[in-house]
Every structure is written in structure tokens, then in C-alpha cells.
Design a protein around this nucleic acid. Sequence first.
DNA 1: CGGTAAGGTGTACGCTGTACACCGGTCAAG
DNA 2: CTTGACCGGTGTACAGCGTACACCTTACCG
Lengths: 230, 230
Amino acid sequence: MAQQADGTRRTPLTRDRVLHTAVALADRAGIGSLSMRSLAQELDVVPMALYKHVANKEQLLDGMVDVIVGEIDPPADGADWRSAVRGRVLSARRALLRHPWASQVVESRTAPTPGTLDYLESVIGMFRAGGLSADLTHHAMHALGSRVWGFTQELFHGPGGDPQAQAAALREAADRYPRIVEIATAGAHDDGSVVGRGCDDQFEFEFALDLLLDGFERLHRQGWTSAGHR
Amino acid sequence: MAQQADGTRRTPLTRDRVLHTAVALADRAGIGSLSMRSLAQELDVVPMALYKHVANKEQLLDGMVDVIVGEIDPPADGADWRSAVRGRVLSARRALLRHPWASQVVESRTAPTPGTLDYLESVIGMFRAGGLSADLTHHAMHALGSRVWGFTQELFHGPGGDPQAQAAALREAADRYPRIVEIATAGAHDDGSVVGRGCDDQFEFEFALDLLLDGFERLHRQGWTSAGHR
DNA sequence: CGGTAAGGTGTACGCTGTACACCGGTCAAG
DNA sequence: CTTGACCGGTGTACAGCGTACACCTTACCG
């Protein structure tokens, strides 16, 4: 045992190795083909061996989330709260985009992981250090929602197939959904002649993020409090 | 066949009956216990019978989404775009909240359903009727993201267990996550003595929605266009 | 009256997560 | 030096899932 056929000792399983291999496998093969069995095979081990390092699959996914959260850059210091938050969130976005399955897994978590709590604690700290009240910060965090993670909940982010064909199908339905078609083409590029590649996700994300941060700043400056609104 | 033991003719299966029974079952037993087998049993039919009315489970979920979308009130007319959109989105929220599993299922859809497209078409129409440019409307829709459905992507919306115990655990970790604890209690109620029931979701949702709508209105008034920003 | 199609049935397959018993190796205590 | 406990990897097994496929009954239409 702990020996391979050729007699060389196998690098032992650890929780870390399990987690990082799982992340790599999900990156390569998609989250859909990550099963306890496929992961075990990847680690050249029997499926049940994983359970010595991870309580169950849910906890495996929790651990994977924390691996990704660990890739988020530390807070920049010396910046005003607005750009500090902005920068951190965009860093989270970069981390999440590196792993296409990540947003889906983050969404599916039912309880916060330790890494998650650390991250939130730190983002909240930025608002507070900037002088925003605990009250406003509370509502700001809710307003950001999943956007703190750097992703917008896209309506229909799925594989979607060939975008060319999809665009064609949409144009075909232009009499039923004229405004969707109009909106889908608007803002996509300067020449609106082709439906083409769709719109710039990064731009859309920053647009919404800045809109929210602008709102927070405005409310902060005018000393807004939730007291009068409830 | 098509007879029950007592000889009375069984009401025949239809796509609609399948869909509505599925919704009711998910409401009652939770989305987690909705399987093709459990749904079949509910309909007093063999599992494979469902496949004569629904291509597969994904399409079943699509159909269930459209049932919920069908519960959204039609647009109010005669209102300015801002309150028209607001009202419609809040109606969507009411529909979604009636079915706790709905937001999760909506999120999991990979391609838009017909009902979904109708709804989006109509919301877009409200912005356009209010005079917003196709460009601004495009970005506005992206900014709203899943909020058009009336739900914020909550960080960790899970069962979470006893909130009392959860709050106690959080307070216990107050030295590790002091700002999270502070923020969790802030804005929850006027007397901050108890962590208690958490915060008012409805308020949080409307706060963020109004912040965004305010932003759209401001940009609209100043004739904003995305051209200069990219 | 007979053929066709629609709809409900039964069986079976491959996949999933994971419970539970087992067992070899390492290491500490007697 | 032996013994016993524990840690970590193994093997088998089970219940549940979605669903492919062949079948059979019934309703209807020419």
C-alpha cells in the first residue's frame, strides 16, 4: 500500500491535494464531470479514499470555493474606499473568471465558508474605513449581492451553442420579440449591422458596479440612514 | 388501463397537469425531493409516462419556470416608466417568493424559456416607452441582472438551520469577524440588542432596486450614452 | 372492421453519493 | 522487543437518480 506498481511511493493524499486537483479537474473537464469517482481516478485512488480528507461532496465544493477565494488579491491600501472596493471586486471577478464553473458553485453554497467570511469581513472593512456607517454598509452589501464576487447573475449564461445560430434564431423571432432583438444589438458595437459576438460582459459589469458605488457615495455624502425609510 | 382500481376513469395526463403538479409538489416537499419518480407517483402513474409529455427533466423545470412567470401581473399602464418597471419587478418578486425553490430553478436555466422572453420583452418595452435609448436600456437590463426576477442573489440563502444558534455562533466568532457581526446587527432593528431575526429582505431588495432605477433615471436625463465609455 | 397513432407500462442500464467492514503500515507505550 | 491503537487507503454494496427501449392497450379515423 502507498506503493504503485513500479514500486515508487505514491505522493500521499492530503486535503489540499484533493482540493487543488478537484479545481484543476473542474477547469479542464467542466464541473459537470467532477464526481467523487472521476476525482478519485484523477488522484489514482479509490473513490472512498477521498472521504478520509473531505466529509462529503458538499464540503469538497466548499473547499474548492475557498481555493478560488484564496486567489483574490489582498486589499490595496492607500486608496479611497470607493476605488479600494472597486479594485477588490474586480480582482474577485478575475479570479472567478479564471474558473468558469466557480460562479455556479459559489451560488450553490448554502452556508458561508471560512474563506468567504474572511473576504466579506475585509470588504466590509473597506466601506467602514471609508467612513460609511454600519447601517449604510449593511444595505450596500445587500445591494451588491453576488456582485461582490465579481459576477453578475447573467440571465442564461449557459453554453447556448453557436452564437451565430442563436443570433440568427433571435432575428428570426424579431417580430415576436422586437425589443429584445433591438436591445441585444444596441451597445454591442458601433456598427450595429451584425448581431455578432454579443456585448462586452466586462463593460456591463463595471457599468452596474459603478452605478451602485455612485449611489452609495451619494447616500454617504448626504448622511443617509435607513431610519426614515422603514 | 386509464382505469383506477375502483373502475373510475383517471383524469388523463397532460403537459399542463404534469407542470402544475410538479409546481405543487415542489412547493410542498421542496425542489430537492422533486424527481421524475416522485412526480410520477404523485400523478399515480409510472415514471416513464411523464416522458410522453415532457422531453426530459430539464424541460420539466423549464415548464415550471413558465408556470411561475405566468403568475407575474401584467404591466400597469398609465404609469411613468420608473414606477412601471418597479411595480412589475415587485410583482415578479411576489410570484417568486410564493415558490421558495423558484429563484434557484430560474438561475439554473441555461436557455431562455418562451415565458421568460415574453417577460423580458415587456420589461424592455417599459424602458423604451419611457424614452430611454436602446443603448441605455441594454445596460440597464444587465445592471438589473437577476433582480428583474425580483430576487437578489443572496449570499447564502440556504436553510442555515436555527437562526438563533447561527447568530450565537456568529457572535462567538465576533473577534474573528467583528465587522460582519457589526453589519449583521446594524439595520436589523432599532434596538440592536439582539441579533434576532436578521434583516428585512424586502427592504434590502427595494433599496438596491431603487438605487439602480435612480441611476438609470439620472443617466437618462443627462442623455448618457455608452459611446464615450469604451 | 382494420390500421394507425397516442399514451401508459415494465424492465433495465449506467451513473451518482456514500455507508460500512476490512486491513496494512506506522508509531507510541509497556 | 512486542503489542495495541490509530490513520489512511480498499472493496463491496446499496439506494436513488434520469432515461433508453420494447411492449401493450386503447381511441379514433378511413
